[in-house]
Design a protein around this nucleic acid. Structure first.
Length: 799
RNA sequence: GCCGGUGUGGCGGAAUUGGCAGACGCACAUGACUCAAAAUCAUGCGGAGAGAUCCGUGCCGGUUCGAGUCCGGCCACCGGCACCA
């Protein structure tokens, strides 16, 4: 058979579409499988090979599940709000709606040409009103439950994009979108109280099947630490200073205090601070630094002593100085620390520079040289003296603090509340009204969706305001509560909003009464297998788990966790081994591959190219290798014989087993390798029988479905191969009658022998000794030990 | 600095979890077909050696009849977190 991939692929894509064979049913006696891939942002550039790798993995799993008798939901949609469309709108004065629709059409067309078995009836678009209506609905529910608040805050601001960024979007002090430097700016910010869910998000990780490194990254991100809050009386003013520490056991070693430059204590007691000018200068210096500069680890600590009051150590009454220094952050703990220079390197560096006393309270280090953070016997520490275990001394100290009412056990998280607004047009409008009388008033549920108004000019407003602020008909409204004149919030939600719940909408994409029908949701949830990129593990994954857990707590969904299992594909690097990027000119366009080699070759190649979870460079020659493989597959019909071909039987069953098990572990590369190996065996035999061909086509179908369907049809088989029953291997038939095993002398391989599979110990030894070479090697030596591992190895230990 | 991961031919990568290292593919070489090239097919392909053999999975050591795999100590690279108290 000639392999004309172009005809074959368009033919079968149409047939599948016409027959609707990949549509999921909301009621079925079959077991369900919900496979989810991260929906794309429909960029103007179209699909990237990264999309292909990400989708092809679960595509294979989903196709296999269907053939195994599951009712499969494998949907796709578009995460279409976001900056690129808006920036393009600003440049070309085209409405983002127009561009978005155009890009979605283009993307869909590309996806269809790869032949994915998506249920296209359930396609969603986060920018459609009937979708974002429910995004707004969830926001209002969160508002109702006290998870939304507004605060003036120092925020990460991108002067180029003119938007406020979350910490997540400004990692490393660079804007995630345009990579320019982020500056600090004071703004009114909407926050989602994700920190309230920190513990639930941590606990939830214990109940799900995520790759270990994914769990690890989420735990790092949440960053829980346990310790204690301790109150220090301030001598000279009627005030206490609360600090957070993970090492309350070192309290006797405290020789100074440090508060963050932004600490409110400074302004409150400005008139009592004797050197307020110096303090002000220092604060001004710090304000100039970006968050990034401030969080750089520097040995050279800076700071200024605050003169006018001193702190009193609650356990020994000693009077100690208070400094402001920018190595303490206002955003973590209480913005103040107790400094224990003997046992914390940062405090140590500071103490050395400012000539502050260093008191050792834990033995084991050399505090003349550096701080000692290890374990050891407590000294100079009153009631803790003599204790040698960190845990014990911490517990003992907390007990004492709580008894005396000067402190308490506590926990802290690195994760911060989620800054949930952007000064942009192309996002979900935040459904809140500002009323001069009633304050903030939520838009009533029945008024949702709060639609984006038509706008002519998409440029940001004054001082980074949303373009919506310029639309008077949008801004001016009546207060839903008192009916008086009011103004609408003009900020929109960040890009992460829609993707925080989209998987629920696939279940019931056209529902206008609820985000999702209860019954359908109970049937489909949780997502059985979610695959995506590592780059979304700490943002999208955390956000959506948070939203879902909230929806669970208010009874909207039935599972605390949205995703039962999460895996991640590795990057595809450019042919040069570097990350693909336009500027490097090493980008591979998947549609070029479809055009030149066919979708089946592309799909097979991205899964064969290497370990699915690892980053692998693209290789054009290997693409050709996959094409060659499929061409050889196309030759199979000519080799079919009516007679049984027993010599292929055990090879086939081994292949069925390998492919079946490997797909479950995402070891697609070895699954395909075994398909290639079997094909080599068929070519060597020169023939295969009808049953062997049928089973082989089924195994190939998830990877190269167009070609597999074509051969299925050409060889006179009925119905869609995509709906055929997945082959089952017979364990007994995967075992050969004879097996070739190695024979070692003193652990070194000397020869091999062919013996019956599973043969007895003595028979194996006899056979091994009968081997000419082995016989000559053991002759005249003393046989000390004989080892036999059935079907593996014989080893003679001789002297 | 802390946490996680990886290190195997010229390249991408295999190795049933302690049992014949290098499956499968690429590249390369030789041969066949061809006027020729491409495509295809066949054979070879870790290193050294004419050979029997010897060496070989980042490095050093250990356990074991036997180590890519287990243990101890290093080195290199990748990813995440990071003056987080």
């Amino acid at each position: 058979m000639k392999y004309n991939f172009k005809d074959i692929e368009s033919k079968w894509q149409k047939k599948w579409e016409d027959a609707g064979i990949f549509k999921a049913s909301d009621t079925s006696d079959k077991p369900k499988f919900y496979g989810l891939v991260e929906f794309p942002y429909p960029s103007g550039a179209g699909m990237h090979v990264g999309h292909i790798k990400a989708y092809s993995g679960l595509e294979v799993v989903s196709r296999k599940r269907r053939m195994e008798g599951y009712n499969v939901l494998f949907p796709i949609g578009f995460d279409a709000f976001g900056l690129p469309a808006e920036n393009y709108a600003i440049k070309t004065a085209t409405h983002p709606r127009v561009i978005t629709d155009q890009n979605i059409r283009h993307f869909s067309e590309q996806l269809r040409r790869v032949g994915y078995s998506f249920d296209w009836d359930r396609t969603i678009d986060t920018t459609e009103e009937d979708f974002y209506k429910w995004t707004q609905w969830i926001f209002l529910k969160m508002y109702e439950h006290g998870l939304v608040f507004r605060d003036k805050a120092w925020v990460n601001y991108c002067p180029s994009c003119k938007v406020v960024l979350s910490n997540e979007d400004s990692q490393g002090g660079k804007c995630d979108i345009c990579h320019s430097d982020v500056v600090q700016k004071s703004k009114d910010v909407w926050y989602l109280r994700i920190t309230k869910y920190a513990d639930k998000l941590l606990e939830g990780l214990e109940t799900v099947d995520y790759l270990p490194n994914i769990k690890q990254q989420q735990m790092n991100w949440i960053g829980k630490s346990t310790g204690a809050f301790v109150n220090f009386r301030l001598d000279g003013i009627e005030e206490t200073l609360e600090i957070y520490t993970t090492r309350p056991d070192t309290l006797f070693g405290v020789t100074f205090m440090v508060i963050a430059p932004e600490h409110p204590l400074i302004d409150k007691y400005a008139d009592r601070i004797e050197n307020m000018d110096a303090v002000r200068d220092y604060r001004a210096q710090c304000a100039k630094k970006t968050e990034f500069e401030r969080t750089q680890l520097v040995k050279d600590k800076t700071g200024v002593e605050v003169k006018g009051f001193r702190a009193e150590n609650p356990v020994n009454g000693s009077k100690i100085p208070v400094y402001i220094a920018d190595y303490v952050m206002m955003g973590y703990g209480t913005g103040a620390i107790m400094a224990v220079p003997a046992h914390d390197q940062r405090d140590y560096d500071f103490a050395k520079k400012f000539g502050i006393e260093i008191i050792e309270v834990i033995k084991g280090g050399d505090i003349a040289k550096e701080a000692y953070a290890g374990d050891g016997e407590m000294v100079n520490s009153g009631f803790l003296n003599g204790l040698t275990n960190k845990k014990d001394s911490i517990a003992r100290m907390i007990e004492e603090l709580e008894k005396e009412g000067i402190g308490r056990a506590g926990v802290q998280y690195k994760m911060k509340d989620w800054a949930f607004n952007r000064q942009r047009y192309w996002g979900e409008p935040i459904p809140i009204v500002h009323c001069p009388k009633c304050g903030m008033v939520p838009v009533p549920y029945e008024e949702l969706p709060l639609r984006l108004p038509q706008v002519e000019n998409f440029e940001a407003g004054e001082d980074g305001e949303s373009p919506l602020a310029k639309i008077e008909s949008f801004v001016n409204c009546t207060c839903p509560k008192c009916g008086g004149a009011a103004k609408r919030e003009t900020d929109t939600m960040p890009q992460w909003a829609g993707s925080s719940w989209y998987f629920l909408r696939y279940i019931d994409p056209h529902n206008d009464q609820a985000p999702v029908d209860r019954k359908k949701m109970e049937y489909w949830m949780p997502v059985d297998w979610y695959n995506g990129g590592m780059e979304h593990v700490t943002r999208h994954m955390i956000y959506s788990r948070f939203w879902h857990r909230f929806l669970y707590d208010i009874g909207v969904v039935n599972t605390p966790e949205p995703y039962a299992k999460r895996t991640a594909q590795g990057l595809i690097l450019g042919p040069d081994g570097d990350k693909m990027s336009k500027s490097k000119g090493n980008v591979v366009d998947p549609l070029d591959i479809v055009e030149d080699y066919g979708a089946d070759t592309l799909r097979t190649y991205v899964l064969f190219m290497g370990d699915y979870g690892a980053a692998t460079p693209w290789n054009d020659n290997s693409v050709k290798g996959c094409k060659r493989f499929l061409e050889r597959v196309a030759g199979l019909p000519d080799m079919v014989t009516k007679d049984h071909v027993p010599e292929l039987e055990s090879k086939l069953h081994k292949t069925i087993k390998k492919v079946t098990l490997d797909i479950e572990e995402m070891k697609f590369n070895t699954a395909i390798a075994s398909l290639m190996a079997f094909l080599n065996d068929v070519y060597e035999a020169g023939k295969l029988d009808e049953e062997e061909l049928a089973a082989y086509l089924k195994l190939l179908c998830p990877f190269a479905p167009h070609l597999a369907e074509e051969i299925w049809e050409k060889t006179g088989r009925e119905g869609f191969l995509s709906l055929a029953v997945w082959p089952v291997y017979d364990e007994a038939k995967t075992v050969d009658r004879t097996v070739e095993i190695g024979v070692q002398i003193n652990g070194k391989l000397r020869s091999t022998i062919a013996i019956p599979t599973g043969c007895e110990k003595e028979d194996a030894f006899t056979a091994a000794k009968a081997n000419e070479k082995i016989a000559s090697l053991i002759e005249g030596k003393t046989l000390i030990k004989e080892i036999y591992v059935p079907n593996k190895i014989v080893n003679f230990v001789v002297k």
